[in-house]
Computed example of a mutant assay.
Amino acid sequence: MLAPARLLAVALVATLALTGCAASDSSGDGGGGGGGGDGEGKASSATTRTVTTDYGKVKVPTEPKRVVVLNHALAGYLYDLDVPVRATLPEDADGKGEFSPYWAKEAKEDGTTFLPWSVDGFDLEAILALEPDLIVGGGIGFPLFQAEKVYDDLSDIAPTVLVGKELGDWRAQFSFLATDVFDKGDVYDEHVAAYDKRITEVKDAIEPPPGPVSFLAFTGDGTAYGLVENVGLPAEFKKVGIEPAPVFANGGFKVYGQGGDMFELSTEKAGQTITQPSVFVMGFNADTTDVATLKENPVYGALPAFKSGHAYDLPYWVLRGDYDESMALLDIIEKEFS
């Protein structure tokens, strides 16, 4: 948390920034402010627009130049939209940071850097030092929880848009950012059309594994989580004809954490629950395990999918994939089951 003197400095910066925005709005659109609903002439010259979020209305620049993204999982959308990213977070709190292979080229061209990040929260002074003109945060899980805690402090630094927890998959997140925040709905439409076309191609090309299927994600300490079958990754598998089993719906589990897409499984419970003909295995935030390793555990090795050879490895990044990762997942499915 910032010291009191630092908070005063933040407030001063924010006040000056808002004054500048107000002056720009006044000179550009006759004092009507930003937003897309002010009429043809005003909208064409506006320097800001108003975005409605779960946390209130936010006036954002129409052409931001120094965007800070407080969730590695959201950064790819901005590169797809050709929005410059000044900095983002490492994928793991306390991690060194590595660009996704799907946007590494764009990140290097933008000069994107990694901000320090810990389980205790964001480094607000490091964010302030970058002088962002827009902050984008939120998304699924821990980054949203942290951003909500310091939303007012972030908003004192720059206009801050959080992707709310109800936007639980890549389509919802991408649509919100493209259409509402950056006014590039046409780019989103083009990407979705390409994805839907690829879905049809893959569905026609594969022979699905024996179903229904279940999904397991493992943290570095070996804790297992099942994936809720009607959201996120399992829902994407269903689109290509790989049917998720109603493990969560029938098991009396509680959703874990802030994400709404996982539930914790003890080893004993996993042995009783993951009895489906096929199972997909992945790490959480890293490739923490694989089918071969799990098969050596007597509980997992005894499961039907492991005994029959229908347990499949997935890379960790598919768990909460963005658009580019979801497209790459379709390639993996096609290669595995064609």
Score class of each variant (00 low, 15 high):
residue 315 P to V: 00
residue 92 D to F: 03
residue 252 G to H: 06
residue 182 F to V: 06
residue 334 E to Q: 14
residue 102 Y to L: 06
residue 299 V to N: 14
residue 54 D to S: 15
residue 135 I to F: 10
residue 8 L to H: 06
residue 70 L to R: 10
residue 171 R to G: 01
residue 302 A to K: 12
residue 71 N to S: 15
residue 325 E to Q: 07
residue 89 L to Y: 00
residue 105 K to D: 15
residue 209 P to L: 07
residue 152 D to W: 01
residue 180 D to M: 08
residue 258 Q to Y: 05
residue 184 K to W: 07
residue 258 Q to K: 02
residue 95 G to H: 01
residue 153 D to A: 10
residue 129 A to F: 07
residue 155 S to N: 11
residue 46 A to C: 08
residue 58 V to H: 07
residue 316 Y to F: 15
residue 12 L to P: 00
residue 237 F to A: 12
residue 1 M to K: 14
residue 16 L to K: 14
residue 221 D to E: 11
residue 163 V to H: 08
residue 147 A to N: 01
residue 292 A to K: 13
residue 139 G to S: 08
residue 243 E to S: 04
residue 31 G to Q: 04
residue 250 N to H: 02
residue 67 V to D: 12
residue 334 E to T: 01
residue 167 L to P: 01
residue 58 V to R: 05
residue 329 L to R: 07
residue 62 T to L: 13
residue 165 K to H: 02
residue 200 T to D: 15
residue 234 P to Q: 03
residue 167 L to C: 00
residue 84 P to G: 01
residue 321 G to C: 03
residue 307 K to D: 04
residue 99 F to P: 09
residue 214 S to M: 04
residue 79 Y to E: 11
residue 20 G to Y: 01
residue 171 R to C: 03
residue 309 G to S: 07
residue 187 V to S: 11
residue 301 G to E: 14
residue 112 T to V: 05
residue 74 L to H: 12
residue 303 L to Y: 03
residue 220 G to V: 02
residue 8 L to V: 09
residue 248 F to N: 02
residue 174 F to T: 09
residue 300 Y to C: 12
residue 188 Y to P: 08
residue 141 G to V: 03
residue 89 L to Q: 06
residue 73 A to N: 09
residue 235 A to L: 09
residue 337 F to V: 01
residue 329 L to H: 00
residue 51 V to I: 11
residue 333 I to W: 08
residue 97 G to N: 00
residue 135 I to R: 06
residue 303 L to P: 10
residue 35 G to Q: 10
residue 55 Y to R: 15
residue 303 L to W: 11
residue 230 N to M: 01
residue 228 V to I: 15
residue 179 T to S: 14
residue 59 K to A: 15
residue 264 E to P: 06
residue 182 F to K: 10
residue 65 K to T: 14
residue 168 G to C: 04
residue 158 A to T: 03
residue 95 G to I: 00
residue 91 E to K: 03
residue 31 G to E: 04
residue 106 E to L: 08
residue 84 P to T: 01
residue 7 L to K: 14
residue 18 L to T: 13
residue 246 P to Q: 08
residue 45 S to G: 10
residue 315 P to W: 05
